Computed example of a mutant assay.
Amino acid sequence: MCVLKSNELHRIFEILDRDGDGYVSVGELDWLLDKVDVGTGPDELESIMGKKSLDLHEFMLFYNSISQQCRDEGGSKEGVDEERDLIEAFKVFDLNGDGFISCEELRSVLSRLGLWEEKSGSDCRSMIYEFDTNSDGLLDFDEFKNMMLRTNH
């Protein structure tokens, strides 16, 4: 699992807090999970979260708790789970199922998740280029995996 920095968690929190009330609710988190086809219902989420909504500090503690549990469960199983998670994440981005992520697919998924702003000046081609080792303008699974497992960029 790729560990997120606090500024990345803060940005995710702001995106998830769709109503701007300073809390991420079960419904808002369920919205995200639904967008990435993770079948967790509101009741299960509330059970996992331990309450109906989290402020930023609680959200960060919640993320850290889940991250730590994943690391603690580790062992030889961790690599298998990580690989399976990456395959599922890859499928979310590979919209046409051809085994590659194109610039258009990347932009579409990031937009759907509320993580892409056209006015930002970012270009998904440059995002892909950084990890596109065979220079075909697409990300295959191994390139995607390297991107997701990067430690410092």
Rank of each mutant, 00 (worst) to 15 (best):
L9Y: 03
L9H: 06
L9C: 08
H10E: 14
H10L: 07
R11V: 02
R11Y: 04
R11K: 14
I12L: 14
E14W: 00
I15A: 06
I15Q: 06
I15P: 00
L16N: 10
L16D: 10
D17H: 10
R18P: 02
D19L: 02
D19N: 15
D19I: 02
D21Q: 09
D21N: 15
G22M: 07
G22Q: 07
G22D: 03
Y23S: 13
V24N: 02
V24Q: 05
V26P: 06
E28L: 13
L29M: 15
L29G: 03
W31E: 07
W31H: 15
L32F: 13
L32S: 08
L33N: 07
L33F: 11
D34E: 10
V36L: 09
D37E: 12
V38L: 12
V38Q: 13
T40G: 00
T40I: 14
G41D: 13
D43I: 09
E46P: 04
S47K: 14
S47I: 02
I48H: 03
M49V: 04
G50P: 02
G50M: 05
G50K: 12
G50D: 02
K51V: 06
K51H: 04
K51S: 14
K52Q: 09
K52C: 05
L54W: 02
D55K: 10
D55H: 06
L56D: 01
E58N: 11
F59Y: 10
M60P: 01
L61S: 12
L61W: 00
S65N: 14
S65F: 01
S65H: 11
I66W: 00
S67A: 15
Q69I: 07
C70A: 09
C70Y: 01
R71M: 07
E73S: 14
G74R: 09
G75H: 04
S76N: 12
K77S: 13
K77H: 04
G79T: 12
G79I: 08
V80W: 00
D81I: 12
E83I: 10
E83K: 15
D85I: 00
D85W: 02
D85S: 12
L86M: 12
I87P: 00
E88W: 01
A89L: 07
A89C: 13
A89G: 13
K91D: 06
V92Q: 09
F93C: 13
D94S: 10
D94M: 10
L95I: 15
N96G: 05
N96H: 05
D98I: 09
G99I: 03
F100H: 14
I101D: 05
E104T: 11
E105P: 09
E105W: 05
L106D: 04
R107L: 06
R107I: 14
S108F: 03
S108M: 10
S108A: 15
S111Q: 13
R112G: 13
L115W: 05
L115V: 03
W116D: 11
W116H: 14
E118N: 10
S120M: 02
S122Q: 13
D123A: 09
C124I: 01
R125A: 05
M127K: 09
M127D: 01
I128V: 09
I128Y: 04
I128D: 04
Y129A: 15
F131S: 10
F131E: 01
D132Y: 02
T133P: 00
T133H: 08
T133F: 05
N134E: 08
S135T: 04
